[in-house]
Write a protein that binds this DNA or RNA. Structure first.
Lengths: 200, 200
DNA sequence: CTAAACTCCAACTGTTCAGTTGGAAATGAA
DNA sequence: TTCATTTCCAACTGAACAGTTGGAGTTTAG
């Protein structure tokens, strides 16, 4: 058969995103990845080495896509509500990543963090941007930037990471829609950072 | 040997909390639960029926403990910052529950929610309490109570549900401690709900 | 054209796994 | 005391699993 090594690898990676997002690194099954990809499972060991290494490759690939899709710019920290809205949009249209990160969160605490140095640098940049916005008066100075940024991440991602809680909590709110969630998110982030239109 | 059926069952449940918190419903191993409990694994099938039913029993038991430890009172909605602090304290001292709920969140979306009616009623009460506080002027009226309550849950639990993100984001904040997290949490919740001391 | 290297496959290995079975030991009722 | 019931156990069953092997087929270099 005609070879297309890169295509085979990508097919496996794409299939692995689906399998790991659904079942996590321990529950995923190598034969299902191979079946979904239409590729022999021996190829997984040839290209990736092991099941856990495949999971790492999947996380690296998907994190790179997020960084590309929602890049950090200095102006974003000046409008964290809008930034939160963009991150929300990304996860709404592409739910696999937060599931993968949730599985990552639940791994053995001793597990090495995937792409840690790149991700830590990325987050350091974001926290620094928030800190700079605090100095410019666009964001309240209390609490520290890292705490503020954490809270923004928390309320942005929660809708996707706790679906069972969301369904129970929002059951009595008939006007609940993704758009209203997004609007409340942006409003609440604005309030957290002290944006002027939220002062009552 | 002297029989103590209830003790055997509780030993298995306690061992299962540890195993499911660490590995989740798919990654957990029945033989490890039995070994940790010091009980034959056949007893698991006798008392609980199956691995998944054991997971459900574990979640039910741990959720009942939370409801008992951090009960809802009407006064709590008048001070959501304090309430958030109490929930934070519970999870800080007892991290298994949020791990179990995180595994629950990642189960197949078609999976029946454990103790759904009780939990939904519990959350409905909480949202109603927030709504009442809004009417009394103790909490801002925008966005709707369910959105506010969701945001409070989000920033309270995030410290425990995203440890890898926390470690990267907080790496550049040397003054980061559980106490400072708690203090920032209460401050941010106060700001979200429009508590008077946060207006700038 | 040939041989080396590479990609890919079906079948395999050794182990693990959830769940079950047949029976031992303890308890309780008659 | 005896028998029925219950609790508990070691070993088992059937299937699943991650990872490996031997070799077929294709590509590339000489």
């Amino acid at each position: 058969m005609a070879w297309d090594t890169e295509r085979t690898r990508q097919l496996l990676l794409d299939a692995a995103v689906i399998e790991f997002a659904a079942h996590g690194p321990e529950g995923a099954r190598i034969n299902r990845v191979a079946a979904t990809a239409g590729v022999n499972k021996e190829r997984i060991y040839q290209y990736f080495g092991s099941k856990q290494k495949l999971f790492v490759a999947v996380l690296e690939a998907e994190l790179a896509k997020l960084a590309e899709a929602v890049p950090l710019t200095p102006t974003q920290a000046m409008d964290l509500g809008d930034y939160a809205g963009q991150v929300y949009d990304y996860h709404l249209s592409y739910p696999h990543l937060l599931r993968l990160m949730s599985w990552e969160a639940l791994q053995d605490p001793g597990t090495e963090i995937v792409a840690e140095s790149e991700r830590a640098a990325h987050y350091a940049d974001k926290v620094a941007a928030v800190s700079a916005a605090q100095k410019q008066g666009a964001v309240v100075v209390d609490p520290a930037a890292a705490y503020l940024f954490s809270a923004v991440m928390a309320i942005t991602t929660w809708w996707f990471t706790s679906p069972q809680l969301v369904s129970m909590i929002m059951a009595g709110t008939p006007e609940d829609t993704p758009a209203n969630r997004r609007a409340s998110l942006m409003q609440l982030v604005g309030r957290l950072v002290g944006a002027s239109n939220t002062v009552r």
